[in-house]
């Protein structure tokens, strides 16, 4: 059975999919979300709404999803295991489905140490793979974790993430296999800067036949500046930014750095698109949503089906 997800429709039609991301504001103003959404409308198949990313308090993913839905986008609600126990998670899944949110992305979540409330208690009642199982169980079996019956199943397209650049590298494809087996239907990867390593990971993925069980969207992030590239390389856990890419940004005149950053992103899209088993891209233009149109157009991915 299919869901109402636009992303599912696009992926099942065999079209190369495009998703992007919208980080909700640190305040209650829905206009900020609408504005970000307006940049993306017509350029992406679905838009992720982050769930208190980097453990910084923001407008809830749930509410921002509804705001985006209101402007005509199909949102992907992100849900992390850090802040809710299994009771709250299942309750939010029901609520999201009831209000027409068709996609859920299951993640562990960044540790609260990195956020604005490092003194908070974390939850981690279940992990991301168990969350995938939970959604699938509710949708397909009509059962809560407890085994009790769900009256009115949530019809949700299930996503997950994987980081091909984290360690140990040898289990990164196996871990995706676990997520696919748990019920994930699409995966958005960590930002791909090191295409060679990503290719290697995809080879392992294909060897295990996982690409036939799950739609793989490669993560793309345009670099805004040399400083951002260096920060991503040195300070973001699990990020692999090759030195050549930083050198390339350094090699152009100052006013051309952003342009070069976009160029690299577009080239990366073209390179990952050529890899067998890659079904789409997930463009994470961090606080730079207005550039997504340009990237999608330059990569020849516009108009969207």
């Amino acid at each position: 059975m299919s869901t109402q997800s636009n992303l599912e429709r696009v992926l099942k039609s065999g079209t190369f999919a495009v998703t992007s991301e919208c980080g909700p504001p640190r305040g209650a103003d829905p206009e900020v979300v609408k504005k970000k959404g307006s940049y993306l409308l017509g350029y992406v198949d679905c838009v992720n709404v982050t769930d208190n990313q980097t453990s910084v308090v923001r407008m809830s993913s749930f509410s921002a999803c509804l705001v985006l839905k209101g402007v005509g986008l199909d949102p992907i609600m992100q849900m992390v295991c850090r802040d809710r126990n299994r009771i709250a998670m299942q309750s939010d899944i029901l609520g999201a489905a009831a209000l027409g949110i068709n996609n859920l992305l299951c993640l562990s979540g960044d540790h609260q140490k990195f956020g604005d409330h490092p003194t908070a208690k974390n939850v981690f009642d279940i992990d991301s793979i168990q969350l995938i199982q939970t959604v699938k169980g509710m949708r397909d079996e009509g059962r809560f974790i407890s085994g009790q019956e769900v009256k009115g199943k949530p019809n949700i397209f299930i996503g997950c993430v994987e980081n091909p650049f984290a360690d140990p590298f040898e289990i990164r494809a196996l871990r995706l296999a676990k997520k696919a087996a748990a019920g994930a239907q699409f995966v958005q990867t960590q930002c791909v800067f090191n295409v060679e390593k990503f290719e290697k990971w995809m080879e392992m993925v294909r060897d295990l036949g996982i690409h036939e069980k799950i739609h793989i969207l490669a993560g793309i992030t345009p670099m805004k500046s040399i400083g951002m590239a260096q920060y991503m390389k040195n300070s973001v856990p699990g990020m692999d930014v090759p030195e050549e890419q930083i050198e390339r940004l350094k090699g152009v005149p100052k006013e051309k750095v952003t342009e070069e950053g976009i160029k690299i992103a577009v080239e990366t899209i073209e390179r990952v698109r050529a890899i067998k088993g890659v079904a789409g891209v997930h463009i994470m233009a961090i606080e730079w949503e207005e550039k997504v149109q340009e990237i999608v157009k330059a990569a020849g991915l516009h108009p969207r089906p």
Partner: peptide, 18 residues
């Protein structure tokens, strides 16, 4: 740090915790 049962999470690098 996240008491994950099906790890490692994406923050594991060089054998160290994020």
């Amino acid at each position: 740090a996240k008491s994950i049962f099906n790890g490692p999470c994406g923050g594991s690098q060089g054998g160290k915790c994020e």
